[in-house]
Computed example of a mutant assay.
Amino acid sequence: MSMRTVPSTPAAQAAVPVAATPAARRRSLAPLEPVSARARWLLGLAFFVLFFAVWAAFTLGGYVSPTFLASPVTMVREGWALFAEYGFIKDIGMTVWRVLGGFVLAAIIAVPLGIAMGAYKGIEAFFEPFISFCRYLPASAFIPLLILWAGIGEAQKILVIFIGSVFQIVLMVAVTVGSARRDLVEAAYTLGAGHRGIVTRVLIPGAAPEIAETLRLVLGWAWTYVIVAELIGSSSGIGHMITDSQALLNTGQIIFGIIVIGLIGLVSDFAFKAANRRIFAWSYLR
């Protein structure tokens, strides 16, 4: 009986393809083991293909009534009608503008306040109880008051997104800045930095990548707030279209609107990631 010999010298062992060994194959399935960029794209695409295949099988196969769930073919046809006949591109533009307006306004106020809270414990002690209290209040609960205060115009919708985003950003930024490495702070003091220099040259640069990641995450939450705001007292936007489609029992348009929201969010998420990698390239080298 022939036996497989294993090379004994280091040079011979290096010539053996690592990927072909059972240990290498098991390692590719190990926890936290990274996958290649190509495999990540293929796996992500495979899920969407499987999802649409199951959806088509249930709807086109007659297992689900079209009244409750439109088929992918019907959804595409209704989506085309939205663009061709009802000017849906304008609704998309209005929704994107509202999201960006409320989110940018929240970031302009929340990021400096979060940095101040993370850097100075006195400021944190003053603001944190109130901000923690407000963080648990749903933004949708403010809609009746905001309609009374700001009417049903654009200000009301932007304020809903602002309320839903600002408190989350403040606390997350404060935690990020406050968790700075103490050895770097002490080293900066040793080199002659003052209190202001510690904030501007140690805390903010060190926390900047995580702050950008926080903004990316909260931007995703802002999309949930704008749809809620547009469901009430709105004459334009994706949420308004979904409400009208619900009254007509047009599940194809409802699903298309939901998918459009997801696609816009996915594109903005990838753009945010690409910008972060370009601006803070040094942080991805660790």
Rank of each mutant, 00 (worst) to 15 (best):
R4Y: 01
S8I: 12
T9K: 01
A11T: 11
Q13H: 07
Q13N: 08
Q13P: 06
A19T: 14
A20Q: 14
P22N: 04
A23T: 08
R25P: 03
R25F: 03
R25S: 04
R26E: 11
S28W: 00
L29T: 15
P31M: 07
L32R: 13
E33C: 06
P34Q: 00
A37M: 06
R38W: 10
R38Q: 02
R40T: 08
W41Y: 04
G44M: 07
G44A: 05
F48G: 06
F51I: 13
F51K: 09
F52T: 15
F52H: 07
A57M: 14
A57L: 14
L60E: 15
Y63Q: 15
V64D: 14
V73Q: 13
M75Y: 05
V76T: 02
R77Y: 08
G79D: 01
W80F: 13
A81F: 09
L82T: 02
L82R: 08
F83H: 09
F83P: 00
E85G: 03
Y86K: 11
F88H: 04
F88R: 04
V96G: 06
R98D: 09
L100P: 07
L100I: 15
G102Q: 08
G102H: 02
F103P: 06
F103A: 10
A107C: 10
V111K: 12
P112S: 11
P112M: 06
L113A: 09
L113Q: 06
G114S: 10
G122K: 13
I123P: 03
I123K: 02
E124R: 15
F126N: 06
F127N: 00
E128G: 00
P129K: 10
I131Q: 03
S132M: 10
F133A: 11
Y136H: 14
Y136M: 13
L137P: 00
P138L: 04
P138F: 05
S140D: 05
A141V: 12
I147S: 13
G153L: 05
K157T: 03
K157A: 09
I158L: 07
L159I: 15
F162I: 09
I163K: 08
I163L: 14
G164N: 03
S165A: 12
S165W: 01
F167K: 07
I169W: 04
V170L: 09
V170T: 06
L171W: 07
A174V: 01
S179Y: 03
A180H: 02
R181E: 09
R181D: 11
R182I: 14
V185M: 06
E186P: 00
A188M: 00
A188F: 04
Y189N: 04
L191I: 04
G194N: 08
I198F: 01
V199N: 10
V199K: 12
T200N: 10
P205M: 03
A207C: 08
A207L: 10
P209V: 12
A212F: 12
E213D: 07
T214Q: 02
L215G: 03
R216V: 11
L217H: 08
W221A: 03
V228N: 05
A229V: 05
S235F: 13
I238S: 01
M241G: 04
T243S: 05
A247F: 14
L249C: 03
N250K: 12
N250E: 02
T251P: 00
T251I: 10
I255T: 13
F256W: 05
G257R: 08
V260R: 14
I261S: 05
G262N: 09
S268M: 15
K273E: 15
A274C: 08
A275S: 14
R277C: 05
R278I: 11
F280Y: 12
W282P: 14
L285Y: 07
L285M: 05
